[in-house]
Design a protein around this nucleic acid. Structure first.
Lengths: 359, 359
DNA sequence: CCTTAGCACTCTCGCGTGGAGAGTGCCAAC
DNA sequence: GTTGGCACTCTCCACGCGAGAGTGCTAAGG
């Protein structure tokens, strides 16, 4: 099988390949020459189509499950379809409005926004959605707050500029009075807002070694609390939604595949790795079949896009499902939702900026 | 089929029924008279066993999938097994230790403890675990804190006495300075700690109507923030874990059942209703098959227990899986984990009490 | 009266067979 | 280059058959 460039295919070849893909995406069954001919778009006989299909198979765009079955598109075919055979339709106005309404609904915090986005994605696509929340270490601090919860137990609340909230319970060596906690909260918020947690931790570590011996009590406590409270581990969090809708699809008739699919969803670390591979560069990235171990193993595809605040990418969102997927619909959806989520998060930052400039 | 009391069965009948249940739980296949006879525990021939099995079927403890298949226990059989044929084994020391280690690990907040409990439950049982977090309205307030996040956006952090943390973003009508937020936080915490959110909301409403016109500015703001921040809706939250392990079981060979199962897990409201039915009364509750719509539809069982702090039940935790379940192992597990989680949460309260008594 | 061996009966399951149908590949004609 | 025709291949399904498993019943024995 010698694959060749897209432009080696004659326009007629491309038309036929396109028809096959579209038909297959709808029917989930191998496409026969006859069914393409019957559509009549090209005015060709089944025999002619058969010749072309034989070529397309030779070039690696089609395969047959067995002799005397119809043909099925390969990942290469989907790639070509996406790159040059698909008009990128806009998302229907109804769905845009639906998304906007849901994202704008409440003064939600960022975590809620992400959950909503995940749900929208799976609901509108009837596929499994995956959203990766930002790694806490890369987020920009907006505010820290310490709340006394029990003797020697303090709850640390970290709010990122994009509106993500993280709670962490920490145990202190000695009881710290409430007033002092307030002072420490204010001190840290005023001095470190606008920096990433990673930066802050590094600065605190330096400060600690420099002033190790002559630190006063308050500063020591501040540093202790900040180190514990601003630790970097817990995230990234992964939200998976819509798995049950996927079970209705015909390609998941056998349990073993379903099971592998669920194991894939459970292995969050692997999902994060795969999705983060898509984060660089704007726009929508598509992984199909053998592009990655996870997708090839299941014959699945991933359509993903980063969401960002300003120019900083925060996380990724995408759809994971059988390669036979309505890319004409899914790609605009992921694209739009990536932007919509970015916008919704940026609105928060705009609010945050405004308050930063107050006296 | 005339069901009869447990004690109407002769000891031998009970022995045979017991053997059948135990065998079926292991093998997942209808149990034949011959296989019971071959175990030789009773020294009876297959023919005798057959006679007894015919009786047991007539009384509603067994069914055959078809003539000339072995027999399968009914929900009634499982009930009897649990009530009077099973020695309640203690949970193995290894597993106890494992649970304790995991629950004691960090100064985790209560939400984390619940997530850990859910995971332990599914890991140790290889079944699906379900944990219902407390409805926020019933939790006892430990502390409230307001954090300024953006202009007119305030994050409200609510900590319950058991250590549950809830965040809620609220939008205020006008900008509130940070100092004032601190004062409001302190005021609310000092005046309302120890009451349920439901109480607090009622008291605030009364206060509002009483003083509607002559309230000063600060009090008005306090009430506004408290009403928004202490609203009762968001929870209860439901954690479901371990679904993929369940897919390995032979009874889930057909997709439709798997799908219904997942739809059941997605319908959280229904899960909550079912689990909360188990909350009253101490100890472990078991629903089997036709006890409830959800379990009968799938031929599933639910083994559930409440967890509590002091004498107040907070939520429920349990295992949901095919009725063919190793109750001898699952029941002690749920029992133990219910107590372990209660204890872990109570330790927090103890800490909270101690700090309350400080000057 | 309970137990047991024996036996006929029933139902499932696996297997092979055979025909229908779908689809292809190739060839010859246009 | 296109098309109709035709032989070939492969899947799928229905059918039948036999083996096996398990039962229910009966009759004999303790």
């Amino acid at each position: 099988m010698d694959t060749r460039d897209a432009d080696r295919l004659s326009p007629r070849d491309r038309e036929i390949l396109r028809d096959i893909i579209v038909t297959y995406v709808l029917s989930a069954e191998p496409v026969s020459s006859r069914s393409v001919a019957k559509q009549g778009r090209l005015g060709l006989s089944a025999a002619t189509i058969r010749n072309v299909m034989a070529d397309l198979e030779e070039w690696g765009y089609l395969v047959q499950p067995h002799t005397s079955a119809g043909r099925v598109p390969t990942p290469a075919a989907y790639h070509m379809f996406i790159e040059s055979m698909m008009q990128a339709r806009k998302l229907p106005a109804r769905e845009r409005r639906y998304i906007e309404e849901n994202l704008a609904s409440t003064p939600a915090d960022a975590d809620e926004l992400i959950a909503i986005a995940s749900h929208l994605l799976s609901e509108l696509s009837q596929q499994v959605s995956i959203v990766v929340a930002p790694a806490i270490g890369d987020t920009v601090l907006k505010a820290v707050d310490f709340v006394s919860v029990a003797e020697r137990k303090v709850l640390c609340v970290v709010v990122s500029q994009a509106g993500f909230v993280d709670n962490r319970m920490i145990e202190t060596e000695e009881e710290i009075p409430r007033q002092e906690l307030t002072r420490i909260s204010n001190y840290l918020t005023q001095n470190f807002a606008g920096h990433t947690l990673r930066d802050i931790r590094d600065r605190l570590l330096r400060q600690m070694t420099e002033e190790r011996l002559q630190v006063d009590n308050l500063l020591a406590r501040t540093i202790e609390l900040a180190r514990e409270g601003l630790a970097l581990d817990s995230r990234p969090e992964v939200l998976v939604d819509g798995a049950s809708a996927l079970l209705a699809r015909p390609e998941l008739a056998d349990i073993q595949r379903v099971r592998r699919m669920f194991e894939a969803f459970t292995d969050k670390a692997r999902l994060v790795r795969m999705l983060n591979g898509c984060i660089q560069g704007g726009g929508v990235r598509v992984l199909i079949g053998d592009d990655s171990d996870l997708t090839s193993e299941l014959d699945f595809s991933l359509v993903a896009s980063a969401y960002r605040v300003g120019d900083q990418p925060l996380g990724t969102l995408g759809i994971f499902g059988p390669s036979r997927m309505d890319y004409q619909k899914i790609i605009p959806l992921v694209h739009y939702l990536g932007h919509a989520l970015s916008r919704a998060l940026s609105d928060k930052v705009a609010g945050a900026r405004r308050i930063d400039q107050l006296p």
